[in-house]
């Protein structure tokens, strides 16, 4: 690949990497085994998001019950969403479904599981 080709490709490519927001980190993360009690689920995204059009659902896999409070909280930088849990979690597997809308109106979504296994 010569320099001119690379230059032209770079010139035309900004949209590739600018196009959409994505999940950067999650706490608890994917397939994580949590041993200490948690009160919130926090998702850090790659861009600023609209809280009104973003959501996180936390579902207990065994009972299919929603465990989140339903109210999204956004941090000052506008790129992290968190949701508090209704009460203390029981030991077991949990499914997190999230959907985020960036401030330029693009959407991103995903889901993952984590396990709560408190130390006796």
């Amino acid at each position: 690949m010569n320099f001119k080709f690379v230059f032209l490709m770079l010139t035309l490519c900004p949209a590739i990497t600018l196009a959409h927001i994505d999940l950067v980190t999650a706490s608890p993360g994917k397939d994580e085994v949590v041993v200490k009690p948690i009160q919130t689920i926090r998702l850090k995204l790659s861009g600023k998001v609209e809280p009104k059009f973003s959501k996180i659902e936390v579902i207990e896999v065994a009972s299919k019950n929603r465990m989140d409070s339903g109210e999204i909280v956004i941090d000052e930088k506008q790129d992290a969403l968190s949701i508090s849990l209704k009460g203390p979690l029981k030991a077991g597997k949990y499914h997190v479904k999230w959907k985020a809308t960036s401030i330029d109106a693009h959407k991103a979504h995903g889901e993952y599981d984590f396990t709560f296994a408190p130390k006796e």
Binding site: M9, L10, T11, L12, P14, T17, L18
Partner: peptide, 15 residues
């Protein structure tokens, strides 16, 4: 267009 496009691409990385 070339310079600003290149600058934006470099700022965000290109896949």
């Amino acid at each position: 267009i070339g310079v600003t496009g290149l600058a934006m691409a470099l700022r965000y990385g290109v896949d």
